[in-house]
Amino acid sequence: MLASLSTMMSHGFKSSKQDFNFGPWRVTAARNHIMKSKDIERLAEEINMPSLPEMLFGDNVLRIQHTDGYGIEFNAIDALRRVNNMEDAVKVACAQEWQESRADSEHSKEVVRPYDWTYTTDYRGTLIGESIQMKATKTTERIDMEKLKAREQIMFFDEVLLFEDELHDHGVSMISVKIRVMPTSFFLLLRFFLRVDGVLIRINDTRLYHEAGKDFMLREFSTRESKVAELKNVPAALYTDPNEIAQHLTLKLTESERLELPAMQPQTAVNDVYQ
């Protein structure tokens, strides 16, 4: 089932690309180098932001693609396009100092102006397909998380980091995506995690679930956020662990969508199980 695995060494960094086929689907997980400064400068200008994350993996991607060509992928650049480039959404004592420290960076030649220096994004993935794409429609359906807790063989698992920034030693901002494929379904979690020390913790999650034989995927987006002052009864050791702190944060928003699969040709119809 593992279609290909290639690795290469360049500048001491191990790049990898892994493809996994299951039923009519293929998962591609690719990791590459941090973007070069000239590419970062070009991108910053394109999306009108004075600064970009310290570790930006512009070529990293996790893609789920049907044999008919449509699908969904998760990449850093599209995630950054969803950042507010006009407003400083989190105002803290260190913000001005932090921005000034970036003012002389190689990709910020102009006067630093307000923008969301936490890189908060509500990115939920990029629909792909040249001639046909999945269609997103709002729904009240929810992913059955209890069903996902059932013990089932994991045929494939991978995790890809898209970007990370330490906010000039004042916390962390990062987004990563991971997927697991079981014999009858697959489940994906895209997580944006923000910790601004002494100020707030925020988690934006996108969950994607598909059962073999169904003509849709379920995509759920949620925002959880709490000020650090509201977490007095939570051990500080949990602040750095997204999995642990998530359950202590206040749920601010939940949205659910069906990603409708286009009408499939008989030869590529989804089987009852992934083969």
Rank of each mutant, 00 (worst) to 15 (best):
K252Y: 01
K17M: 13
M264T: 05
N60V: 01
Q267F: 07
G171A: 11
E230G: 09
A89I: 10
S101D: 15
I77H: 01
F193G: 09
T240P: 04
R219D: 00
H66M: 02
K232C: 08
E54R: 09
T254N: 10
L218M: 01
P242V: 10
V234T: 12
R42E: 00
D88P: 00
Q153Y: 00
Q153N: 13
V61Y: 00
A212I: 03
N21M: 09
K232Y: 04
F163E: 13
K232D: 10
L189T: 08
H107L: 13
V199Y: 13
W25P: 05
M9Q: 06
K38W: 02
A212P: 00
G213R: 04
V172F: 01
E46S: 07
Y274F: 15
V112D: 11
S222I: 00
S51L: 08
Q275I: 07
K178E: 04
D158N: 14
G198P: 05
S37W: 08
V112A: 14
I47T: 11
V92E: 03
I201L: 13
M9V: 09
N233K: 11
M174D: 06
E100T: 14
Q18V: 12
E141G: 02
G23L: 02
D104A: 11
R81M: 15
E230I: 11
H107M: 10
N271H: 14
S51V: 13
T67L: 09
M155S: 14
R113W: 07
I179P: 10
N60F: 02
D68E: 12
G71D: 04
M35F: 01
H248Q: 08
F221H: 15
L238S: 10
T184H: 09
E46N: 07
H168M: 15
D197A: 10
L238W: 15
E257K: 15
P50T: 02
S105N: 15
I154P: 01
R102G: 06
V61P: 00
N85T: 03
T223A: 12
D104V: 06
K149C: 02
L249R: 09
E166A: 08
Q265S: 14
L259T: 05
D104P: 02
L200Y: 05
E230S: 13
D88S: 10
H248C: 11
F20A: 07
H11N: 08
V177I: 08
S173K: 03
T137Q: 14
P114F: 07
D78A: 14
L259P: 05
A229Q: 12
E260G: 01
T254K: 15
T240E: 08
H107E: 11
R224E: 02
H33Y: 08
N84E: 00
L56A: 12
A44V: 11
M9K: 14
L249K: 07
G171S: 10
L5K: 04
G12R: 01
I201H: 00
T28G: 07
T223E: 15
T139Q: 03
I203A: 06
K135R: 15
R180C: 01
F13C: 03
L162Y: 12
E73R: 05
D165N: 15
N85P: 05
I77T: 03
M155Q: 12
I34K: 03
R195W: 11
R180Y: 02
L238C: 07
T240G: 07
V90Y: 06
R180L: 03
R81Y: 12
E97I: 04
S131Y: 04
S15G: 11
